[in-house]
Computed example of a mutant assay.
Amino acid sequence: MTTDTAYRVNGVGRADGTGVWAVLLPAGRYDAERLVHHDTLELTGLDGTARPRPGDQVAVLADEPPRLVALGRVVAPTGEAPEDPDDPLSERGPAELVVAYTRRAFDEPVPADAVTLDRPVSPLDPAVFRRLVDRLGPPKERRSWLVSLDLPIEAESPAEAVRLFWAYVQELGPRELPAFVSPSGDELAMQAFVLGEEANQDPEEDD
């Protein structure tokens, strides 16, 4: 990886005594991270000798175009992790690199043109890292939201209806089911989301 400046100590950028790295999301992983909340990012099958150490800072990037989608710190693997974070039933394997998210920007990524991506994990210049962090700006204030998912289900009993509900949720997931969200106390502002984006659910408005 190359950046607009050149600062390396033993091949690894340093800031406040920790390494600074850029991690490129694999193809298709960006959508998976947007659709379902994960506390960590697990990457397997990495090659090469340069590896972040626990405590190192990480800029998580998506490609085409390069953009910053999250910040994190490397943590020690605690065991095995799923190969596909969007599929909890997928086969499990060893997590070679685990990044604990400290800041997410999947919905509003910022440009990362100063970083040239040529491998999944590379050292990053601390000055470039700081500029990327500055582009994110301060975190938004957290607030309470009401999120609901309504499914008409035919069943012989309430218990069976609940079982079918969870079966449909697992089968269809956030890629197909619309979730309805509104600020607490303002249900009239409800919006539907599919695939992580606002989706119109009123067929009359499409005409």
Rank of each mutant, 00 (worst) to 15 (best):
D202K: 05
A112D: 02
R104W: 09
A22G: 08
R163M: 08
P158Q: 05
D47A: 09
A199G: 03
P123K: 01
A27R: 14
P109L: 02
T49D: 13
T49L: 12
A6Q: 10
P109F: 03
V74A: 12
W166C: 00
D202T: 10
E80W: 12
V110N: 01
D87W: 06
L43Q: 04
R34G: 07
E96Q: 12
V58T: 00
T40W: 04
L151V: 10
L46S: 08
L136P: 03
G11C: 07
T78D: 08
R103I: 08
V121Y: 03
G196W: 03
Y7Q: 14
R73N: 10
D39Y: 12
G93S: 14
L71K: 00
L35M: 14
L172F: 15
E187V: 14
L132I: 02
R175H: 02
R14K: 14
E91T: 08
E83K: 07
I153R: 04
T102P: 10
A81F: 14
G72Y: 02
P66A: 10
V20A: 06
D113E: 14
E42W: 10
D207I: 12
A50C: 12
S122D: 13
D134F: 13
R143C: 05
A105G: 02
E64L: 12
D207H: 12
R104Q: 11
L25W: 01
E156Y: 13
I153N: 06
E205Y: 13
P174K: 02
P120A: 07
D39P: 09
R175Q: 09
R73V: 14
D206R: 15
P203M: 04
A155D: 04
N200D: 07
Y7S: 15
R135Y: 10
D31S: 11
V162G: 09
L177K: 04
Q191A: 07
G137T: 09
A27C: 08
R34F: 05
Y30L: 12
T78N: 10
L117D: 06
A50E: 14
V121R: 01
E156R: 13
V98A: 06
G72I: 01
A6E: 12
G173S: 09
W145N: 05
V69R: 01
S157M: 10
